[in-house]
């Protein structure tokens, strides 16, 4: 009991002393000294009492231990309050709106996906339905139904990959044309966005894996003028500006005539820049009225119906939209690239 009372008075006097010392204490240095005097690791007044605990009997420990701890916590709280008071009086709280915000982590859609959605949405509004291509198809759909028989020199225009079992990673999304013609009765309005392949070495402007949006339109009384109007309407909606266009003759066996649809450069407005090779024109969409043989093979009577088709390069649109200089970044999987979109 004696020990108990003795200790209780010791604790009380420590608490009182600390309270009165703190009242007079006027700076942080002095505060540290007081703290060390009572709670210092070796010679602190309270620390010495704490060190006594192991030497006590179990019964004494049960009673005295908590009391010492109580005092310790009380002191710690007192010191903390004083420290806070000093801190708030010494440093003015300051609201700095220019501090950088916390960086949130959020997802990014691939730029090709983004632009593809944009294009799909415009075409859907124009009445086109979306059809997905096969990634690997057969000679019949990739070439033969498109009026490119075996041995035709036009086959050289496509640098084709072949699988060992003689299938073709599609060279163009036109490979779906025959299936579309067969499955829907005119009027037919469909687009085919998809991944295509060409046997070509890769550099900043060329990729063996690329993306196309094929378009097919078949109905009665469809003319070449309708093709021009459709493509121009799409491109003006896509680039959100008035465009000049021109047509260049070309050759693709599945359209007759084969044409290239060019628009005035959207970067330099036709004045000439690196993007358009200083010509002022962008060669964007190979297209043309569907060849009667292709219609026939698709079960569509070319006497009654006519139509047009195109195969637009999607990568090019994406590169134009974001001014991306290197096509290889698309498949790099590099987040530092992707997180910019």
């Amino acid at each position: 009991m004696g020990l108990d009372q003795n200790l209780a008075s010791q604790l009380k006097s420590i608490e009182d002393k600390v309270a009165s010392e703190l009242k007079q204490c006027s700076d942080l240095d002095a505060l540290q000294k007081i703290k060390a005097y009572f709670l210092g690791r070796k010679k602190g007044k309270l620390t010495q009492l704490i060190k006594l605990i192991p030497s006590l009997s179990i019964n004494e420990r049960k009673i005295l231990g908590p009391k010492i701890n109580q005092t310790k916590n009380k002191l710690l709280t007192l010191f903390q309050e004083k420290e806070k008071a000093f801190a708030s009086s010494n440093v003015k709280s300051f609201f700095d709106p220019t501090l950088p915000g916390e960086k949130p982590i959020y997802g990014h859609l691939h730029p090709i996906t983004q632009v593809c959605y944009e294009a799909e949405d415009i075409f859907e509004k124009m009445g086109f339905e979306i059809v997905e291509p096969f990634e690997i198809d057969d000679d019949f759909h990739v070439f033969e139904t498109l009026n490119i028989p075996q041995g035709h020199p036009a086959r050289d225009m496509w640098d084709t990959f072949w699988t060992e079992d003689n299938f073709i990673p599609i060279t163009h999304t036109s490979a779906m044309q025959n299936r579309i013609l067969k499955s829907v009765k005119p009027p037919i309005r469909a687009i085919v966005p998809g991944r295509c392949f060409r046997h070509e070495a890769t550099d900043a402007r060329h990729e063996h894996t690329f993306y196309q949006i094929e378009g097919v339109y078949v109905d009665q009384n469809i003319s070449l003028a309708d093709l021009l109007g459709t493509l121009l309407s799409f491109l003006e909606a896509f680039f959100q500006q008035k465009l000049k266009y021109k047509i260049q003759p070309s050759y693709f066996p599945f359209v007759e005539p084969g044409l290239e649809f060019l628009i005035s450069c959207v970067i330099c407005k036709g004045r000439g820049c690196a993007t358009c090779g200083h010509s002022g024109w962008l060669e964007l969409i190979p297209c043309g009225p569907i060849h009667p043989n292709v219609l026939k093979m698709g079960g569509v009577n070319p006497e009654k119906y006519s139509g047009f088709a195109w195969g637009m390069g999607l990568d090019r649109l994406v590169m134009l939209r974001f001014a991306i200089e290197d096509i290889r970044l698309f498949h790099s999987g590099n987040l530092r690239f992707l997180e910019q979109f």
């Binding site: 009445g127 086109f128 339905e129 059809v131 309005r189 469809i222 459709t230 121009l232 047509i247 005539p257």
Partner: peptide
């Protein structure tokens, strides 16, 4: 068309119904 000049052709839009296109459930 090519001798006359493609640039002489006035673009037009094909007439079509207001029926919305078929939706592709997969895409």
């Amino acid at each position: 068309a090519r001798i006359y000049g493609y640039d002489q052709i006035k673009p037009s839009l094909p007439p079509r119904t207001l029926k919305p296109p078929k939706q592709n459930a997969e895409t």
